[in-house]
Computed example of a mutant assay.
Amino acid sequence: MAIGIFGLLEVMLLFVNAVAILNEERFLARIGWARQPVDPYAQESVKARLVGLISAVRTLMRIPLIGLNVVTILYLVILG
């Protein structure tokens, strides 16, 4: 992995990939991070916000991640 901007982008892509593949039933529920019903009058905790972020990444980034991964793989194969 090269040091620089592309290296930083590659690390961020790997991190988003890791978040996107987390399974809520098999992994997140085991550690107590499954989505809970939200009380509209209660203030959200940091944990609830992180669970929401994980859910949003899994939902919204599925198709863009496929394209970004293909572009990254092609770049690394062609330019090494």
Rank of each mutant, 00 (worst) to 15 (best):
M12G: 11
G7F: 06
I54L: 05
V16T: 14
Q43T: 10
I3N: 11
R26S: 14
N69E: 06
V51I: 13
M1I: 07
G67T: 05
G67P: 03
L74V: 15
D39N: 15
V19N: 00
A42V: 06
V71Q: 08
N23H: 12
Q36E: 10
G4Q: 03
M1A: 13
L8R: 11
A20D: 09
I63R: 04
G67Q: 03
W33E: 00
E25H: 14
D39A: 06
V11G: 12
W33F: 06
I5C: 01
F27M: 09
V57Q: 03
E25F: 15
R62I: 10
I3P: 11
T72P: 04
L68A: 02
P37C: 04
V77A: 08
L68P: 00
I3K: 05
L68Q: 01
V77R: 06
L74G: 14
V70Y: 04
R58A: 01
L65C: 03
N23D: 13
S45A: 04
G80E: 02
L50Q: 01
L60Y: 13
E24V: 03
E24C: 09
P37I: 07
V38W: 09
E44R: 14
L9T: 09
Y41F: 12
T72F: 14
R62L: 04
A42I: 04
A2L: 10
G4P: 01
L79A: 02
A48P: 02
G67R: 00
T72I: 07
L68M: 01
P37Y: 06
T72C: 09
L22Q: 09
F15R: 09
E25T: 15
L74E: 02
F6R: 07
L9V: 13
V38C: 05
R26A: 15
P64N: 02
S45R: 06
R35Y: 04
V57A: 10
A29V: 12
V51M: 02
R30P: 12
I78W: 09
I73V: 14
L22G: 00
G52F: 10
N69W: 07
I66H: 08
V46H: 07
R49F: 08
V19L: 12
L8E: 13
L50D: 04
Q43E: 11
N23V: 14
K47R: 11
I21H: 15
G32S: 01
K47P: 01
L53F: 03
L53N: 04
E24D: 14
L76M: 09
V16Y: 13
T72D: 12
M1Y: 10
P64K: 00
L68S: 00
I5D: 11
I3A: 13
V46I: 12
V70M: 08
